[in-house]
Amino acid sequence: MPARLDGSEKQVRLVIEYDGTRYAGWQVQPNGIAVQQVVEEALLSLLGHSVRLVSSGRTDAGVHAFGMVACFRTSRGLPEQAFRDGLNRYLPEDVVIRQANIVPLDFHPRFDSQGKWYRYTLNLSPVRTAINRHACWTIKKPLDLQAMEKAASFLVGRHDFTAFRASNCSAKTTVREIFSIDIVQDGPLLYLDVRGGGFLKFMVRIIVGTLVEVGLGKRPSENVPLLLKHGSRVNAGKTAPPHGLCLMEVWYGDQTPCTVPLKNNLPKV
């Protein structure tokens, strides 16, 4: 049954994990089912009234999340754990609430964000994967990981990323700051961990596509500074497939983002 009114409005912050395979992205839209829509429908069932989620951003069709942050307001009286567990009873198997916390009413999941961590997963096996087919991009040819690390180093810092955004990106400014790009190998899997203050549409996927071309020897590492300087999307790499991308974390205030150690001197595979 819906929770009873307790007379005071509160804001609840959710950390949401989802497999984006069957969704048209995070944001509600007319051309397909969205993760936001599914969570809002679960909230209606739990609370007995409709709410609109305000999120830390959006993910595209097929992109996954381990740490999407979204908030809603309600006057229904529930303890924090009950918000989490109650919502999970109404959600499908590919969406789950990992955390639910009461936060101040002036907290904004997007504008108060200090940064985001995206992980792109490559499968370097010569054989495609069946179990993880919706969560990685298979590259069957060897990659020069040291060349990729060198190319990635040019992207760290505050730059104009015009060359690394979708043609229909509507952002008012193309200047963004990347805090770090770590390339970490785990058996046949290669993780590209990109942390930054904010990202343009398709930015991480275009970065990955460009770094893969460097790894395949299709462009030199030194080409990356030229892309940043001249800002031509047509000269950058292909946009990597969406299913390899996952929003791992959004952090706020004094929170320290999770870190993955950078392995130097990675061998060719």
Rank of each mutant, 00 (worst) to 15 (best):
Q185V: 13
K201L: 11
L200S: 01
R205I: 10
G237C: 02
L211F: 02
D182W: 09
D186C: 14
D182C: 13
T174G: 00
E249I: 01
V194C: 09
N235G: 00
T173K: 03
A163W: 00
P188C: 14
A166P: 06
R195W: 10
V175F: 12
V224R: 01
G215E: 01
G217Y: 04
V214A: 02
V184K: 08
G198R: 04
T239F: 07
P242T: 03
A163L: 04
R205T: 09
E213T: 05
R205Y: 06
R165H: 09
V250A: 09
G237N: 01
V194P: 05
R176M: 08
L227V: 08
I206E: 02
V175G: 03
T239N: 05
D182K: 14
G187R: 14
W251Q: 02
D182F: 10
R165Y: 03
R195F: 12
G237I: 09
T239Y: 06
L192T: 04
I206M: 07
P188W: 14
P225K: 05
L227G: 06
A166N: 05
G253S: 05
I181P: 05
R195Q: 14
V212T: 12
D182A: 14
R165S: 11
L227I: 06
P188V: 15
G253M: 07
M203D: 06
S167P: 01
A163D: 02
G244M: 08
L228I: 04
V194W: 07
R219G: 03
F199C: 02
L189M: 14
L189G: 04
L190T: 12
C246Y: 03
L189K: 13
K238T: 10
Q185H: 07
V214W: 06
G217F: 05
L192H: 01
V208M: 01
W251A: 03
T174H: 09
M203R: 00
